[in-house]
Design a protein around this nucleic acid. Structure first.
Lengths: 223, 223
DNA sequence: TAACAATATGACGAATTTGTGAAAAAAGTT
DNA sequence: AACTTTTTTCACAAATTCGTCATATTGTTA
């Protein structure tokens, strides 16, 4: 689970981050200002955003409103010190999915986060990289050419991905071995050549136009 | 908006029904027992179910649990007289999306209902999905082929539904586990394979033409 | 162009992943 | 409580992928 926390109180912020991590939330981003919350939310995907009601530089309610206006569909949980019905209603009207009144217990926060992320219908995030006539899907390990999907084996995919991420640079065998098999791997250099061959065959790269060999150095995909 | 209210207190029940209608909720069904709530929920579609914590003949928490187990994906709001954190957490853990502590104001109930229905309704969800020779009814959890109805178990249905909602993409085992069993579920990955097998058998997918395996990644239903 | 070094290729067994059926465990019904 | 259905686990079978090796091909340099 990936969470964005917008809380200006340093003590409370640190505490929540600490507790969330302890409870097994993989990734927690923490910002202290409303503007930052807005930017972070739009810049990457979060399962839940925890927004403090009062924030310097853009309060929680208006950040929430703007996010919804912008078409943001992820779950938003509002934190508030106020317990007045009218305020709570205002937060929900602004587009928050839930709120929690301070002070609260971490167990309740976790339960609410779980409930929220469970209900999130956000589409599965897909990272797609274009490469000439190909479309590379980094989450599903698939490669599409002219609408036709081909399936790369794990090794083939890792290699292609590595080469694409370093497009224009020549990767030495040492580096490839390190990045794909790990520095302590127990495989011979020849394995790399073999994998390159399998990948070339699968993508139809007969004349080695797509993945080029740099003799004496390694392999590369040109820019 | 269509709402199911499960509340045994006649006075409160009548009041809520009256107020909801006054606030513009088109359709309100009101039951007074836990078993009835369960049956009504599975029999037709509601935007939100308002479940009282204490109900004769099946309390709110267990009704909620059973509904989720059965693959019910509509929003559930729990009503409770208790304000103890542990009780609230218990309700959320049972699969409720939200709770409200009695006594509450009708404005707050309305705001929460709106927030809940907005969240579950945000993405367009077809009630009946066509899939080749099949017709999938997401409300009644049934699958029809050539007019012949087959019965899927909850798990089988959830899996099929998940795959169909993501037609054309490959779902990794991690994501499947997350979406069907929950990210903190305590089942082995093999359970997924087993469920896939049961589903394939039931829909007559001997050659794995309908549900395809993507080795090293997961499963998919192609577009 | 001969000789050498680096890379490509294809085949084969080992390792990993997925499929399968049976049986245990859990949940739901009567 | 007895019974049925569903879910999960487990052990083994089948399929696929991986890594190595022997050999072929290509490129470089003297």
């Amino acid at each position: 689970m990936k969470v964005l926390l917008a809380e200006d109180d340093v003590y409370l912020g640190e505490l929540i981050v600490h507790l969330l991590k302890k409870k097994g939330v993989e990734h927690v981003d923490w910002v202290q200002e409303g503007e930052d919350a807005y930017d972070y939310a739009l810049a990457s995907f979060y399962d839940v955003i925890i927004l403090d009601w009062m924030l310097p530089n853009g309060d929680g309610v208006s950040v929430c409103q703007r996010l919804r206006k912008h078409g943001y569909h992820g779950a938003i949980l509002m934190l508030t010190a106020k317990d007045a019905v009218q305020d709570r209603v205002e937060g929900l009207e602004a587009g928050a999915d839930d709120y929690l009144v301070k002070p609260f217990e971490i167990d309740e926060l976790m339960a609410r986060l779980k409930a929220l992320s469970r209900r999130t219908f956000a589409p599965i995030q897909e990272e797609i990289v274009r490469w000439g006539a190909f479309e590379v899907n980094r989450t599903t390990h698939t490669l599409t050419k002219n609408g036709e999907q081909m399936i790369l084996t794990p090794r083939e995919f890792q290699l292609l991905d590595l080469l694409l991420q370093n497009k224009g640079r020549v990767l030495t065998r040492d580096i490839i071995l390190d990045r794909i098999w790990g520095y302590d791997a127990d495989v011979s250099m020849k394995t790399i050549d073999a994998t390159v061959k399998l990948l070339r065959k699968k993508i139809g790269d007969e004349r080695q136009q797509l993945i080029k060999t740099v003799r004496g150095v390694g392999y590369t995909i040109e820019k």
